[in-house]
Structures are given as structure tokens and as C-alpha cells.
Amino acid sequence: MTKREITYLEAVREAMSQEMRQNEDVFILGEDIGVYGGAFGVTRGMIEEFGPERVRNTPISEAAISGAAVGAALTGMRPILELQFSDFITIAMDQMVNQAAKTRYMFGGKGKVPMVLRTPSGSGTGAAAQHSQSLEAWMAHIPGLKVVQPSTAYDVKGLLKAAMDDDNPVVFYEHKLLYKTSDQVPEEQYSIPLGKADIKREGTDVTLVATALMVHKALEAAAELEKEGISVEVIDPRTIVPLDEEAIINSVKKTGRLIVAHEAVKRGGIGGEIASMIAESEAFDYLDAPIKRLGGLAVPIPYNPTLEKAATPQVPDIIAAVKETVQNK
């Protein structure tokens, strides 16, 4: 495959465009995704290529556009819904949770809802409390929704292809601070299966499971810790539903230590689920130290940049947590 360096944002756009060129049933709908190009510019240029029928600029109506995506999916289309900020999923919640997630089961297996809800999440842009949340654990709690959190340009392209090919609703979180990061990405289409974790860095002393932006902070921390002779294995689950439990279990059996780091509020976050999963698994007997969770503080994301940073785990927090964990030798 021919690779070249492109950004995460370009990889999202390329994944959609390539799919739309070959599948007439795929279309995008969302607010300001037309000539404006979307709140973050992801769809820029797409309306020019695909026209307003397939790049549907919608009114500011999250309940209606999410429901329209579900209804269109149920009747044979494969919609991609872009929500400007993942915080707005609160307004689309009925359609995602009560309709999209449950339709197949409620209908006794008849009817499928092949849709992707793409949405930027996370803090770090100074957009404050209503435009900075990480609500993926809510979605992960609902049987019937798949939840994806890509951390690199390579992953985002392959995972989006898999999400678009899936016959079930997928909530696809794009971290807004990752849009400008770049990576070697194949020009051709490729698919990364949902439910397959990626070991972003191999290590032997501690398993560090991190999601989305936190993967990069974990890698930065791991590089620092290496200088001090501590070997950190960084695992990116890539999808939290389905969760690649096996990859995490195997890693913990190897390292005997587990830290989970995510940006979402720690209370009720996916870190608790991963920690419990390990506690209930065969890996429990291999643990040499208590499991640690790093997550956002239970505060609305503040506006002031210093406060905003302090609300979510940063590299020094990860380093400190790793050191504390490996002390238990």
C-alpha cells in the first residue's frame, strides 16, 4: 500500500469520500457540513464533489437529524451523521439510545440500523463546559451501540471504514485535539476491525491502557519513564464497545500491573469497567500492585486554560501514577 503523511482530519475525510465514491447508499448529514465544511472543517470540499443531496446540510435539529439517520438506515441507506460537538448528543439521546440501539432487538432481529454518528469530543480548546466533554462511557453503557475512539490518523481511517461497513449503529468519537496530528496513512481503503486493541508501545513493567488523546500522553510518559528504566506497555483499545479484553488481560499477565487513563470523568468512566474486568479475570492473580485509574476530575470543564488542563490527566500525572505502581515490586 502506498503511504503518505496526512492528518487525522484528512484521514476522516478521505475515509468518507472513498466510501461515498463506491457506495451510493452512503451519505452525510449534519449542521454546517456543506459549503462551511463542518465546525472543524472535516467535510470541507465534500459538497463540491458529492453535491447537496449526499452532503446534506441540516437545520440545527439534533433530535430530527439523528432520528432521520436512524429512519434512513432502517430503510436501506447508510448514513453518516456529523454532530458538531459530542456534547450535543444529549439532544440526540432518545434517537440513539431508545431507537437506534434497540431497534434490531425489539423487532425480534428484523431491521438493521447501519449508521455512523461521528462527533468531536474532548477538552483542550478552551470551549468550556458544554463543548468539551467526553461522554463515551454513557454510550458504552447501552447495549446496541458500538463505541469507537481512534487516536491516530492511521487508525481513524481504518476504523471509520469498519464503522461504515457495520450493519449496526456506531458512535465514532474524534478527539478534536487530534485532528491536526498526522501519520503515515495508506492511500487505499483498509479496515481495522472494531474490537481489536493496538499495542502502541511494548513494555514489561506496567500495562497502561489509554484512550483517544490520552494515548499520546501515555506514550509521552512512557518515553520519559524509559529514561529511568521503567518499561511501560501502552495499549489503545481503539474501540470501547466491543472491548478487546483479551489483549488487556494478556498484557496484565505479562506486566503484573495496570493503569487505565482516560480524559472522561473518572467517576463512572470506562476505566472502572476495565479495572473490574481485570479484577474478575485470570489476570487478577498476576497483579503485583493495586490497579490505578486516571480520569478527569468530577468538574465541568472550565474555561481558564490552567484550570482546564488541571481538570484532566496530564503527562506528569501519568508518570507519577506509573512510578507509584511500579514501586510495589
Partner: peptide, 13 residues
């Protein structure tokens, strides 16, 4: 909203 989505399919297809 589901009905509107189903009608959108009718129009697009």
C-alpha cells in the same frame, strides 16, 4: 424523526 428518515430514503433512492 424516523418517519422523516424513511421518507429521505424514498427520495434519495
Amino acid at each position: 424523526p424516523l418517519a422523516v428518515g424513511a421518507a429521505l430514503t424514498s427520495k434519495m433512492k
